[in-house]
């Protein structure tokens, strides 16, 4: 197999992995399939676009801004809406998050129109060339940033008190409650954190994809595939799933047919669900 194809796939896969981490976390901890993640991703991308466009702020420096705004929005949505719908079960949660997604997406459409916009910092064209394999600097930087963020989140979940509380809640909400963890707060925190992470993913994605209100929709389906591949709730799983999806897509596009790229990943999704619903790495949130 062509090395260039693999490299392209891996670089893209890192972003997919980061995009799926929030979704995976919410699923693992709160048992919610959060369809609003797509809109959060889009919002993150727009934040980076506007900061870059209006004030010329370097896209990488906009990450904390995206994270903060999305954290706030996530907190608001969890405490005002999600929390109240929790007791009605997963179908209602699926539907309400889809409704939120429509609402947010439409709001962005009204505010910023359907125009395709792009973030083009000065360094976006340049790249490395090693033995015929071309690696654009920006893709490499995005890949490293994505891995760093997932790494930080992993450390946070494993090494801090709050992180441990989140993992305990994921295992058993009732038991966590009994040992004195304020699980209601943990839910709000998890949701906000997940929104912040996917917002940062959106910021990074804006540097290589055109930004429009539909950006998140396209990524949502990829997030499904990645999460199912890696097993929900597992951070290393999300990264692995992202890499597999990235490589599969690059491979399909180069060797089978570019038109079948998405079809292959959706078929992969269904097949994995049928034969190994716990994901390739198993359900191992607690081992994250």
């Amino acid at each position: 197999m062509d090395l260039q194809v693999i490299i392209n796939g891996i670089l893209l896969g890192g972003l997919y992995g980061l995009a799926a981490v929030g979704f995976s976390l919410i699923w693992g901890v709160m048992n919610i399939v959060d369809l609003a993640q797509g809109a959060y991703l889009t919002l993150g991308a727009y934040i980076t676009f506007w900061l870059f466009k209006l004030w010329g702020i370097d896209p990488f420096l906009t990450l904390p801004v995206s994270a903060l705004i999305l954290f706030g929005l996530g907190f608001l949505i969890e405490s005002q809406i999600i929390k109240r719908v929790l007791r009605y079960g997963f179908v209602m949660l699926l539907v309400v998050t889809y409704g939120l997604n429509l609402l947010l997406q439409n709001a962005m459409l009204v505010a910023w129109s359907a125009d395709y916009r792009s973030v083009t910092p000065a360094y976006s064209g340049a790249g490395l060339n090693i033995g015929g394999v071309n690696i654009p600097y920006i893709r490499l930087a995005l890949f490293i940033a994505a891995l760093l963020l997932v790494g930080l989140l992993t450390i946070f979940l494993n090494k801090t008190r709050v992180g441990n509380a989140i993992r305990a809640t994921a295992l058993n909400r009732l038991a966590a409650n009994l040992v004195g963890i304020r699980t209601e707060f943990i839910y709000a925190l998890t949701y906000s954190l997940a929104a912040a992470v996917v917002g940062m993913a959106g910021s990074l994605i804006s540097m290589v994809y055109t930004v429009s209100p539909n950006l998140g929709g396209a990524f949502m389906t990829k997030i499904f595939v990645v999460t199912v591949l890696g097993g929900f709730g597992s951070l290393p799983g999300a990264v692995l799933g992202g890499l597999i999806l990235g490589i599969t897509e690059a491979f399909t596009a180069s060797y089978i047919a570019p038109g079948l790229m998405n079809a292959v990943s959706f078929i992969l999704l269904v097949v994995i669900l049928i034969f190994r619903p716990q994901g390739l790495m198993g359900k191992q949130f607690y081992g994250a």
């Binding site: 997963f90 499904f224 047919a257 999704l269 049928i274």
Partner: peptide, 24 residues
């Protein structure tokens, strides 16, 4: 055989896969 979220996501996957194939 899949329950809950898994079934929901599988049906979304089937929907998208068929759409992609019909497009191709």
């Amino acid at each position: 055989r899949l329950r809950g979220h898994y079934f929901a996501i599988a049906t979304i996957g089937i929907n998208m896969a068929v759409m992609e194939i019909v497009t191709y």
